[in-house]
Write a protein that binds this DNA or RNA. Sequence first.
RNA 1: GCCCGGGUGGCGGAAUGGCAGACGCGGAGGUCUCAAAAACCUUUACCUUCGGGUGUGUGGGUUCGACUCCCACCCCGGGCACCA
Length: 852
Amino acid sequence: MQQYNPLEIEPRQQAAWEAAGADRVREREADLPSYYALEMFPYPSGDVHMGHVRNYSIGDVISRHKRMQGFNVLHPIGWDSFGMPAENAAIKQESTPAAWTYANIDRQKASLKRLGFSYDWSRTVITSDVSYYHWGQWIFLKLWERDLVERRSSPVNWCPSCATVLANEQVVGEGVCWRCKTPVERKELEQWFFKITNYAQELLDDLATLSGWPERVKQMQANWIGRSTGAEIDFTLCDAAGNPTAEQITVFTTRPDTLYGCSFFLLAPEHPLVAQFVSGTEYEAEVARVVTLAASATAVERSKGERVKSGAFTGRFVINPINGEKVPVWISDYVMMDYGTGAVMAVPSGDTRDFAFARTYGLPIPPVIVAEDDPLYAELAGVQERKLTEVPWSEAYDGPGIMVQSSPFTGLAGGKDSAGSQAVIDALAARGVGRPTINFRLRDWLISRQRYWGNPIPAIYCETCGIVPVPEADLPVVLPMDVDVTRGETLASRSEFYEVNCPRCGAPAHRETDTMDTFTCSSWYYLRYTDPHNTTLPFARSVVDNWMPVDQYIGGIEHAILHLLYSRFFTKALRDAGLLGFDEPFENLLTQGMVKLNGEVMSKSKGNVVAPEEMIARYGADALRVYILFMAPPDKDLEWSQEGLEGISRFVNRLWRSVFDLTGEVVYDEEGTQLSIYDEGLDAAAAAARGKELNRELHRATAKVTTDIERFNFNTAISAIMELLNTTQGYLKLPLALRDAALAARAAKTLVLLIAPMAPHLAEELWQGALGEQGSVHEQSWPEYDPAQAVADEVELAVQVNGKVKARVTVATDASEDEIRSAALEAAASVIEDRDVRKVVVVPGKLVSIVV
RNA sequence: GCCCGGGUGGCGGAAUGGCAGACGCGGAGGUCUCAAAAACCUUUACCUUCGGGUGUGUGGGUUCGACUCCCACCCCGGGCACCA
């Protein structure tokens, strides 16, 4: 037999699998339990990179392993093919986004096939195909019907480089665009939104049900949703003399318990009341200066907390509803218009920012919450009226404490969600000037993009009817594929697209030219995979409910908020529309780490990529797959090592030779040199011992590989196969005549079956070639093991004296505790000498601990 | 500031509270060869007066026994953040 030659074997096996339809979902075997394994689909931005190889190798091992365990596995693939990069590339290459996109899809598809991933290619979903985005538009209309779509004017994030608006989730780091890293600008624009905030509470609550998700991801989503409990409190405007007007301004606070400490009131510079307040007054100029200052600061500058807070008095006052006090209204740039109500009750003794502001502008800082161990507490405990208007502190205190100087509430516990807070809310609510509220940080999802290469928003603007949804029967709104973005052509310049009659009144109207955020496409593709050829619906409920939720989802941590949050929202919204019957899309989530080179993320712009195609050409797809699974646990970053890949290549070669050798066949290299392991002339006694050892190792390794794959410890699963191979090679040093043929055959089969999910081509070739088995290795049952046979007859125990290993003792595996104890005491006699033995702890199979 | 991860040989990494460093890489020595490659074998935490001693970021603690559990701290990575 010849040496292992992956470059010949792999394409041949791939062709054979494709011809046999090996990776198709087994629809007819509906009695099998189903398993849905999914990896995040690629964006066709160029060639397949190592991150893809890692992501899809992990998914393929899980899929193939589940298949061998008897599941009917759905393992699909597709492309997330709308989006900006296609437009940029088209401009650069004088092409169209469609041409560039589909050429890349073809290239990536060829690479994925070359890697031998077991996808059901008949279910491929490409989001820029009209057969898919048609149903994205249909879903848009369903959401619209359910009042989850809204076009409204709002301050939004604008990326000047991408020339489009962005969702909040797409503004990352210090306020930059997630794709091009350009600082984002704020603009007031009319845009389309999905009302994800309607689901804020459920999206937060259901995180608790996702026990198969990494804690980190759930934490990130919880942070992003940002729920705060507190109250809305109405302050009434008053004149300089303190006489109330009819106008009210409402604030949101998480600390109603501090209301007696409110010594001023703040509005955001953008607050609509500000101009009205100061117009024509002596305060106008200074307020205008601060407003301009705040407006000119970028999001980055404004979010620097340590910056000196600028502010100005508006000349107006409000009445604190709890004590009737007249409080001055200021503006300050640390108050944000888009959180809460854009107005804040400032309590400088209890809030760091309010404290700094009060010190800067000489405003009073009366204490209202004092910790019991604070010296100030002795002075103020039980004091109901305001006695002290200035804290002796150098900073605000925002922790829990006791309420002071707070009239009837004095003495109650203060702090976040405290009894004191509740009491104040109740008192305000009784008078109708306050109410408990929950505030979320999550904003509605801005989904319109001023770009061509996306799913058209199915809406029509009519002068008489206003904004009209495209009737379901008129779908799809087809995106013209040949728009020439290199000459600045847009959808609006295409009259056959743009000009349309109003579906309601028939008058000339025009189409919406904004397209949807690509994240809308990726928010339901996993549903389409279950029923990809449906021409009347995005998916049939009976089918989607059968496969979903996804049993195992695998992808990068960078989608912890974006894609994963949007998909959860879609699932809940579609559930409420009666289209599906489950609450969460992804039952288990594995976030894989990045592939790095010299500590840096591989990227084209850094020029430090290792191309998968090159590695395949040198070592084969199987070696690359095994390597990438072996080098690190899947959720950790992986440092690329060429030597490591060579090591795996040696391992794969050794496995090839050993399997042949186990069948009695010798492997030769091109020059005819024998490569199999040589007979070392061992005797029958050695043969018996090595046979026993090999049998034990077969059971042990099978057990370990099985549990390790189930726990996604692919690196240690491969280690276990390496150990089994090492033991096997020890056995192969026996002369042929002394080998147990049945044992050798079992070892060969086990090696091949265990490596099959990771190195599918190698396993298939050995299964049919070396072992002469019929059918595909990938359709075999996963090997069984017997834990009782995985242990030796005798075991060596360590004997510890006072916690240190001082001796060793070999006992029968099934020896009683008493036997072990006396054997250990005897073995350690010289160490113990004449000291008293106080205690002996026997841990069977492990060690004996003696305390003297 | 708040919240998550993580710190183990020269390197990647193993260890349900039970012999730290599995497995692999790299290194050293050897077999084969005219030679080399490949393959195979041996060896490889550190110190040592060869008795032994020390070692999983630091300092404490619990335990017969701690990389693992508890407390405090240091460092690295990530998320959120003038969020009221």
